[in-house]
Design a protein around this nucleic acid. Structure first.
Lengths: 237, 237
DNA sequence: TCGGGCATTTGATCCCGATCAATGACGCCG
DNA sequence: CGGCGTCATTGATCGGGATCAAATGCCCGA
């Protein structure tokens, strides 16, 4: 899908009522710094399917996800796609060494980000080791997740992949919005397949199988976890 | 294999003649800082097959690889193994948020590392944003590599995996020791398989196939790249 | 020089997940 | 309300890579 209208809100003291304040990069800043920081970022809205940035694009901005879900992916020349992660509120995107993005990012449903122009942001970091430390923490956390995902992609069966995905996704939502056995899945089956290194058919079949076994229920826009323990057993191998 | 003897050299001004000085974390330090930094690290030798640290171990040290090759891997409860990377001189290991290592690291052949106790190292970083910035750069570089590897694990065929591995490994050795069409492979076929998400038989067969096609020659302890262009074509898909 | 142990190669067969193909279920817009 | 486009499900078949099995090569120590 092609990018369409991008809405940019007028800039204000919006950090105060920011939903991710405390979880995101900005959690490392004190009130005075935050006042200054605020002027660097602007809220930008993307609607479903819009591309926020593409792999190989020159990096002109960094992004802090405020609302919604994004798919982060890489394409092979022949069109095969690997989703390297889903971004949720609090995630910070765009860091790289090459000066170009090393993956693409699309909105899944409506998304709001806090966008920072690269140069002023980089300058701002210069003399804020706290912020740098926070960014480093986020990078290290992502690295750990990336390694876990490598294990999943390289060494787990289709059943294990799907079960692990459901639990991991739920875990992230729990951290964000609290516990619930209803797990919304805003991404398509194709997205899930491309995330797990499977085909859409295999994902669909595995969901159906889990439902027939009575461990999940497939509902509109997500699933209901009927028997979390059994899903965990499936994931553990 | 079990850890055996670990040799620790007496501490001296060894940074001066350190092979990785300039490439590693320490490249961010000036001469005065380096003098101080030097006292934090000690050279430690490991022999082939020894484990430097294990997943879930409490992190007590960080490591800077000076010489040799290490395999970094994660195990599933049932013994399946995914190698998440090979570490070469200049690589910095041990950063994590949980206080525990999130993968294991073994020596492949003789290895020398520069070992830093966690607490003093962390303290040293506190007021050296340069060093922190350098560590952050390394983390971001690794993250990018990790994402590339996800694409390989999730979306590439066995042939593509092997070809991509050979080229990538050669690339790293070129950066380290200069260009050569002879590519040493110190790791076992099993290691390669566990890195690529394949079995040892598939790796072996693919090597033989490449040799029969005349694009590589299998030599003792490595391969010779007879037709790099053709390997690249295979890797690109 | 011989033999035991390990890594690697090679061969035969199997099976999980891919592929090909069709149907079903929505949501949207006329 | 009906038709169409997209996404998901389900079924049938195929095939790449796994698994099982055996042979070969090679290092090293007696």
């Amino acid at each position: 899908m092609k990018p369409s209208v991008v809405t940019i809100e007028p800039n204000g003291h919006f950090c105060d009522d920011c939903a991710v304040r405390g979880a995101a990069v900005c959690s490392s800043l004190d009130t005075a710094e935050l006042r200054e920081f605020e002027h660097l970022g602007r809220r930008v809205h993307f609607s479903s399917g819009e591309t926020v940035f593409s792999e190989e694009d020159i990096t002109t901005s960094f992004y802090n996800v405020l609302e919604g879900v994004m798919r982060l992916y890489k394409l092979l020349p022949d069109g095969r796609r690997q989703i390297v992660g889903f971004a949720l509120p609090g995630d910070f995107l765009g860091m790289n060494l090459s000066g170009r993005h090393n993956f693409s990012a699309d909105a899944i449903g409506a998304v709001t980000v806090c966008q920072f122009a690269k140069a002023p942001f980089t300058r701002f970091i210069e003399d804020r080791p706290q912020l740098l430390r926070r960014i480093n923490e986020l990078a290290i956390r992502e690295l750990s997740q990336a390694r876990d995902h490598m294990v999943l992609l390289g060494r787990r069966s289709a059943d294990e992949k799907v079960a692990t995905f459901l639990l991991g996704w739920r875990e992230r939502l729990v951290a964000l919005k609290g516990l619930s056995d209803t797990v919304p899945l805003p991404m398509s089956r194709q997205d899930i397949a491309d995330y797990l290194g499977l085909t859409i058919e295999t994902v669909s079949r595995t969901f159906t199988k889990l439902e027939r076994q009575g461990v999940i229920e497939i509902i509109h826009g997500g699933i209901s976890l009927l028997d979390p323990a059994r899903v965990e057993a499936m994931a553990a191998a």
